[in-house]
Design a protein around this nucleic acid. Structure first.
Length: 498
RNA sequence: GCUCCCAUCGUAUAGCCUGGUCUAGUACGCAGGAUUUUCAUUCCUGUAACGCCGGUUCAAAUCCGGCUGGGAGCACCA
């Protein structure tokens, strides 16, 4: 049997290979992003491959979710389960025949063997080894079973798995990010590469697929670093070329452990749903473990494609710092044009029951978003920030109306004055509102003997009367959006409290 | 426990390869200030780091060694 290894095609081909056992993780998203950028930068191809060999945990809906979220981020692949490609299929469960062929080859060459040890047995040995302080590894019990015994066991349908014989030698490889890395394969123990001929396991399937799909660079998370020597050994046994490896630093919790559910969300969809923008997430994730070496920190995906270089990827893990994500997201929110931002906010308003048909016009809605956007960190913030615009009647806290040392009667006078000024406005626009009120504030302060420059005596009670909130946009903006009738009504409702 | 990886302000990082220009830069955060009726935005100022010990050298954040600390992996998961 003479199967000569295909040479790596020369062209850059990378892959992102998630297993569909749950929603797309932010760590996975970043891995996908780096692969995508690397491919784009080098004129290569980016492959999406679904590693669903774990039949118990893999679900079609997660494959769909992964695809949906990656697309939302703006990451595109050249080959994948949804679009096909020259090296398909791109789901491992559809590639059983390919794996089988190689599995038989390994078995035939005695580079792999059937193992009949039970799981309980194995677990007990593992415990024993751990307690003795040695590295747990398979003891090779079934490695030298006679051909007859194996055939007899197989004929009796004894449960079995297929193990790969690990060669006892040192494995050295060069990692694009970490440099030379060396492992001693003697510590490894023979790995299980398949449950049976039709059920390959991770280590085996990746190696075969990376070869069959002519992957040139394997860019993945650092958690895979210890897996690499095993995979290299399998490649060698099969006569495959060795791809170039690059192990990305991990994303960390605040306590510096591997990012996990606990300190916050880990599913990309969670960030998506709570109103983070894809451009913010991309910008944020890429800067976790990479930087351009310049002081530029704001990057669009297309700028990233130009400036990305894998050599500048960091070795140490990076803490996922939500403050920075919030800053970036706020920045991108402020950058968005108002039509688009309004569209993006609508689902949140609708979900909160605020967007009832006919209640506000499109124009009003855009104004609401416009005056709220400097306060938004996430799209979902729009609800809390703007709910009072939609309310029919405000539930006012009387104490909030008070500014400085003002007494109830003075607040009442202030609101009465506002009522008067606003009632007299003919053309209801923000300019007239502001001009009228500003003049009124000066007048009011002089009359009452308040510090002349402090417009709060008039404006604070007004703003609270209109918004019901401690913090809000200016009363001018609110009044403009509310319209004359509603504005006056709210002022009068507030006066009744005093 | 074993193997491997890693180590600059609270966080992300620049600088390290090619020692001097580093009294260590930037951003977020935080503190203070300006603008402002409030909050936010914007602008200004400030805050704070080369883990430790030894070696090489005229000179070390930068090179070498050790230590310490942190992380990941050790499945019939991926």
């Amino acid at each position: 049997m003479k199967k000569i290894a295909k040479k790596s095609a020369g062209q850059v081909r990378v892959r992102f290979a998630p297993s569909p056992t749950g929603p797309l993780h932010v760590g996975g998203s970043r891995t996908a992003l780096f692969n995508y950028l690397f491919a784009q930068k080098n004129g290569g191809r980016f492959v999406l491959r679904i590693e669903d060999t774990d039949k118990e945990r893999s679900l079609q809906k997660w494959t769909e979710e992964i695809i949906e979220q990656l697309k939302w981020l703006g990451i595109e692949w050249n080959e994948g389960p949804d679009i096909g490609g020259k090296f398909g299929p791109y789901k491992q469960t559809q590639r059983t025949d390919i794996y089988k062929k190689y599995l038989e080859k390994l078995l035939g060459e005695n580079k792999a063997y059937y193992c009949f040890c039970t799981e309980e047995d194995l677990e007990a040995k593992r415990q024993d080894q751990m307690s003795r302080g040695v590295a747990p590894k398979y003891d090779g019990k079934c490695a030298r079973l006679s051909k007859e015994t194996v055939e007899k066991n197989l004929a009796e349908k004894k449960s079995s798995v297929i193990r790969f014989r690990i060669e006892n030698k040192k494995i050295k490889f060069n990692d694009l990010i970490r440099g030379d890395v060396e492992f001693d394969a003697r510590l490894l123990g023979d790995v299980v590469i398949a449950k049976d001929l039709d059920s390959p396991l991770y280590h085996f399937a990746v190696v075969v697929d990376d070869f069959e799909m002519e992957i040139s660079h394997v860019i993945r998370g650092e958690e895979h670093l210890p897996n690499t020597p095993r995979q290299i050994l399998i490649q060698k046994a099969l006569g495959f070329y060795q791809p170039i490896y690059a192990h990305l630093p991990l994303m960390l919790n605040t306590d510096r452990s591997k990012l996990s559910k606990r300190q916050g969300d880990v599913a990309l969809a969670d960030y998506h749903n709570s109103g983070y923008l894809p451009e913010a997430l991309v910008n944020f994730m890429v800067l976790l473990g990479w930087n351009p070496g310049t002081e530029k920190e704001i990057f669009s995906l297309s700028e990233l494609v130009k400036e990305f270089s894998i050599e500048k990827v960091q070795k140490a893990g990076a803490v996922f710092n939500i403050d920075r994500l919030d800053f970036l997201n706020g920045f991108y929110i402020r950058e968005k044009n108002i039509e688009k931002l309004t569209e993006l906010c609508k689902p949140y308003l609708r979900e909160a029951g605020l967007l009832v048909a006919g209640q506000v016009t499109e124009n009003q809605l855009e104004k609401i978003v416009e005056v709220s956007k400097t306060r938004m960190k996430k799209l979902s913030d729009i609800v809390e920030l703007s709910d009072f615009f939609f309310a029919d009647k405000l539930s006012l806290d009387k104490d909030l109306l008070k500014w400085s040392t003002m007494q109830d009667t003075e607040i009442k006078e202030a609101l009465l004055l506002c009522d008067k000024i606003l009632s007299e406005i003919k053309i209801w626009d923000i300019k007239n509102i502001e001009a009228g009120l500003t003049a009124g504030a000066g007048e009011f302060n002089k009359q009452k003997g308040y510090p002349e420059k402090n417009k709060g005596y008039l404006l604070w009670p007004l703003r609270v009367a209109l918004s019901g909130k401690k913090f809000s946009p200016s009363p001018f903006e609110i009044a403009d959006i509310l319209g004359k009738e509603k504005t006056i009504k709210r002022i009068e409702q507030a006066i009744k409290l005093l």
